[in-house]
């Protein structure tokens, strides 16, 4: 880890910790996040982790640029990565099926693994949550095996149902709410990801996720919506 600090706005600093996306970086980002929150206390407005960076938004009424940089160095001095088991491990049930994951057959064909092979490979891996963004509770996870990697759809869909599980390049994610989207959909997940009332997100940066294949019946029992995917022009 080699830290670079750059201003990105009048009251925001970008902390660049790494140059590439790698699962082994997350324990460092997680540890840095905890230390920075403790050190800045009430002077911290927001801290946004994303793959290789942390964007730190501080309160200009309490700190200036020099003071903020000093606190950052203080917080990250002798930083040790969080232990390998840190970050909550979530086991998320998924009904992998072409009726709710219209790209499942396509990915099976492209990879030469068939739909069953895609399901097996996708559900074998433990994914890291690299960042939340795009929508409240939308967690970018990876890394998906290169064989399953697939570029985004050329034309994004206007409406992707909540719970849809998708792949884009080497990342995978579940849409927390209905939204437009261009990811390759392979299944649906019945557990709500973002609680609007409480403002809680099930998944947090640094968490780990395993997807567990379930049958339609179990999916419905868990509260899933099996409305088939609408075929759109």
């Amino acid at each position: 880890m080699k830290l670079r600090i750059e201003p990105v706005a009048v009251d925001c600093l970008m902390l660049r910790l790494f140059d590439s996306i790698d699962e082994t970086h997350m324990p460092w980002l997680l540890a840095a996040t905890q230390r920075l929150r403790e050190t800045f206390g009430a002077a911290l407005i927001d801290l946004v982790p994303s793959y290789t960076t942390l964007m730190l938004h501080y309160d200009l009424a309490q700190l200036d640029d020099d003071q903020a940089r000093t606190l950052i160095h203080q917080a990250l001095h002798h930083l040790q990565p969080a232990s390998a088991g840190s970050g909550t491990l979530h086991r998320l049930p998924v009904w992998y099926d072409a009726s709710v994951g219209p790209e499942l057959p396509l990915l099976g064909e492209r990879s030469g693994l068939g739909s069953a092979g895609v399901i097996e490979r996708h559900s074998q891996h433990e994914y890291q949550v690299f960042a939340l963004g795009f929508a409240p509770g939308f967690a970018f996870m990876g890394l998906v095996e290169p064989q399953l990697a697939s570029p985004r759809l050329a034309t994004p869909r206007q409406r992707v149902p909540a719970g849809s599980l998708g792949i884009a390049d080497r990342q995978t994610a579940v849409y927390p709410s209905v939204s437009p989207g261009g990811w390759n959909l392979i299944g649906r997940m019945p557990i709500p990801l973002f609680d609007r009332e409480q403002g809680r997100s099930l998944l947090q940066p640094g968490d780990r996720v395993r997807f567990e294949p379930v049958e339609r019946g179990e999916f419905l029992r868990l509260g899933g919506d099996d409305t088939p995917f609408e075929v759109q022009p």
Binding site: V8, A9, C12, S20, V48, S50, Y51, T53, M55, F140
Partner: peptide, 10 residues
């Protein structure tokens, strides 16, 4: 570019 946090007015 790897996605990163976006401040107001970026």
């Amino acid at each position: 570019m790897i996605s990163e946090g976006i401040p107001l007015g970026a």
